[in-house]
Design a protein around this nucleic acid. Structure first.
Length: 241
DNA sequence: AAAAGACGCAACCGCCTAGCT
DNA sequence: TAGCTAGGCGGTTGCGTCTTT
């Protein structure tokens, strides 16, 4: 419900997308407020940016996460915690939002599995059942699926921000993350995904293209490199099919 | 075939930070 | 140096789609 002078909200239309892409190509992907204004879109700069970053950006990969990407997410999350954008930068073609969503889903599944397994056999699989609480004594955030009951969102958060004082207890950061996270996670993943033998098929390869994209500036578009953005037809095809 | 529940994704909100005046 | 603004980020929510009963 936007007021006449207000901004539009809700899902973007194809028309809006085309318009946004056009203006981003024109002015680069920096001045979002400006773009929002000149484009005539009744959207905030923020909204435009988000739409671009999460959907319209030419470097975006769509579809399911590859096993390789999943691994990366887990690995990086164990290092950095919920630093989604930071993680996303290491996984070309994936947005922070996507990774965040993936993680959330992932953790929800895990939480459910764990709940089930503890209900069925509270003493079973020794470490895993204790794992969710293994970190709870620490004021730092545990890696495992914290529950809403703990007052934080349930998928919050793995690793510790090394750069900040997340590590208030002085616990060794990387190790504390490792204590539970990677072992547990890998185990779970193997169990749940072995069946689809994704990991054993050498699917670890990121498309070479992505090495290029990643290494090059496109993923970290900095506005200045507008020449690379002349792939407008791509966006258009991408959007219109 | 219909209803209910689960899942996945897109988008918004609010806070924080960096840059500018 | 303080205040302001835009951009960036993480958390959360809403809704459409898919799956199960």
């Amino acid at each position: 419900m936007e007021k006449e002078s207000g901004t539009r909200k809700g899902p973007w239309t194809e028309q809006e997308d085309v318009q946004l892409v056009f203006y981003v190509n024109l002015f680069g992907d920096r001045r979002w407020d400006f773009i929002a204004k000149v484009s005539g879109l009744k959207r905030t700069g923020k909204s435009c940016r988000l739409r671009w970053v999460n959907y319209l950006h030419p470097g975006l990969k769509r579809g399911k996460m590859t096993p390789h990407e999943e691994r990366l997410v887990l690995e990086l999350h164990s290092k950095w915690g919920n630093r989604w954008s930071r993680i996303a930068r290491k996984i070309p073609g994936r947005t922070d939002n996507e990774i965040k969503n993936y993680w959330r889903t992932h953790m929800r599944k895990k939480a459910q599995e764990r709940k089930k397994s503890t209900i069925v056999s509270p003493t079973s699989s020794s470490s895993s059942s204790s794992s969710s609480s293994s970190n709870s004594s620490s004021p730092t955030k545990g890696f495992g699926p914290t529950t809403e009951a703990e007052g934080r969102s349930f998928y919050d958060t793995g690793g510790v921000d090394i750069t900040t004082g997340g590590n208030k207890t002085g616990v060794q950061i990387e190790e504390s993350a490792e204590v539970y996270s990677m072992d547990e996670i890998w185990k779970d993943i193997e169990l749940s995904e072995e069946s689809s033998n994704l990991t054993s098929q050498g699917m670890i390869s990121t498309p070479p293209l992505w090495d290029f994209w990643a290494a090059d500036s496109l993923w970290s578009v900095d506005g200045q490199d507008a020449s690379k953005m002349d792939s407008f037809p791509f966006y258009y095809n991408h959007m219109t099919g």
